[in-house]
Design a protein around this nucleic acid. Structure first.
Lengths: 243, 243
DNA sequence: GGATCTTAATTGTATATACAAGTGGATGCG
DNA sequence: CGCATCCACTTGTATATACAATTAAGATCC
């Protein structure tokens, strides 16, 4: 193959390395112009498609940004943000090697509360499906899931058997998720939550508010509440998976 | 340009849509074989590079996986996990349009506690740098940052002036982050935290435990504690940024 | 039967070329 | 001056071709 050298490093990768080194050394500051595809062709004696690939991949990685008709530029460093993975509770329990089970407490249709209406694009007090489920880690109640489901999207939600399938699994199957909002916060458990999680009144809880979307629109809105002493959100992530 | 139609949809995008539709409809189950580049060329009357691009981008998006010499296959759905963005507190406050300031409470060297030693790869009770800082949103104390810093990596940490630069900014500058661990949990504020955040004894707090790494090793270990009534972790993310 | 070789299929890298499309500056005109 | 036009530059999409590298399966030989 046409390689730039004997070390087996593809040409486009060599160009990427060069650009990254210029940025990391400070030679090419933020928002400064990067050589055009044509300039890189000359500089590295490669075809435009190869130079383009280097620029393209760096753009996908968030290192550069490009504008048609203008040029390519160094992006702002993203080291200020990291990503935390939020997994399904059932998967998480199984990953611990424990046994997951779920107990259905309530499954009904009720008038849509204001907050939920706003989240799902419904009208206040029009019917919305509601399920209340406790997730167990072995025998310990771990998470209380209060979920509102858009009846227009999932008309047969109330007919499901949630003893062998979690709502999340069912929804994933019938309306593949495309997007989700998440809010994580610390709250004090209310009486209702204390009862179902079997915890005391002053126990802090981690509450995850999740809104899911499929292609057609908002599907569900859920409060996932876990006792602070029993559950953490954890994750390890590469901030700059650059090379 | 050579377009597949008048609607302005590029050919490679049309091929991606086709493949996605087959997967979503269940016609092409998990781990099943996807048409080869050559087969797609024939089917869509495009060049191999165009067919390849469709497969390539779907692979980058996690929809497919490919093996040289073997073929392309449908990947396992990833709808079980989402990603939450964790941003720097100063950025987050500024993004709200508020004024961020930080007050340094303590900056010293102390014997390394056991937990910190394990996190940073140090020996228990050997010296470790420690800083305690309160971050303010306008005039309200928002977050208490207790940070342990590896002296072997950042020898001049104690000499810094943290009145105009946060520890995070300083560390980012001298030891670019490559990776980070995060744990999010809900806790009750201890006396120490209550005092600095000016909150009551029974207020639930969101505690983010963050460990950062540069290329050379573990740099710092920090507890970032915020009052539950004042701070949330929020994020919106495309699970499948498909189009 | 088992090890080795060959071959076909598939993905990976690379080139040369062409035209489309967006941006911004220069030019020319009223 | 203000405005429209044109043009050079840059990125975006697409083709046709070539060769490299990897894998799996079949063929061959011992």
């Amino acid at each position: 193959m046409q390689r730039s050298n004997d070390s087996g490093i593809p040409k486009f990768a060599a160009i990427k390395e060069f650009i990254l080194s210029q940025i990391e050394s400070g030679n090419w500051p933020e928002h400064s112009r990067v050589p055009s595809e044509h300039a890189l062709c000359d500089q590295f004696a490669v075809s435009r498609m190869t130079a383009r690939r280097a620029l393209q991949e760096l753009t996908e990685q968030g290192v550069l940004y490009r504008t048609q008709g203008v040029g390519s530029f160094v992006a702002s460093p993203k080291s200020q943000s990291a990503l935390l993975e939020i997994r399904n509770i059932a998967d998480e329990i199984q990953a611990r090697g424990h046994f997951h089970s779920a107990q259905l407490v309530q499954l009904t249709s009720l008038p849509c509360p204001t907050v939920v209406a706003a989240a799902l694009g419904l009208v206040r007090n029009e019917p919305v499906f509601f399920s209340l489920i406790v997730h167990f880690d072995n025998q310990t109640p771990l998470q209380l899931e209060a979920r509102y489901v858009n009846p227009k999207m999932i008309p047969y939600y109330l007919q499901q058997d949630f003893s062998d399938q979690t709502p999340h699994e069912y929804l994933s199957a019938v309306a593949p998720l495309t997007e989700a909002d998440h809010i994580v916060e610390a709250v004090l458990a209310d009486e209702f939550t204390c009862k179902h999680l079997k915890i005391g009144a002053h126990e802090p809880c981690l509450r995850l508010t999740r809104r899911t979307f499929s292609r057609e629109g908002a599907v569900s809105f859920a409060y996932l509440t876990s006792a602070g002493s029993r559950y953490r959100l954890g994750g390890h992530l590469n901030i700059n998976p650059v090379k």
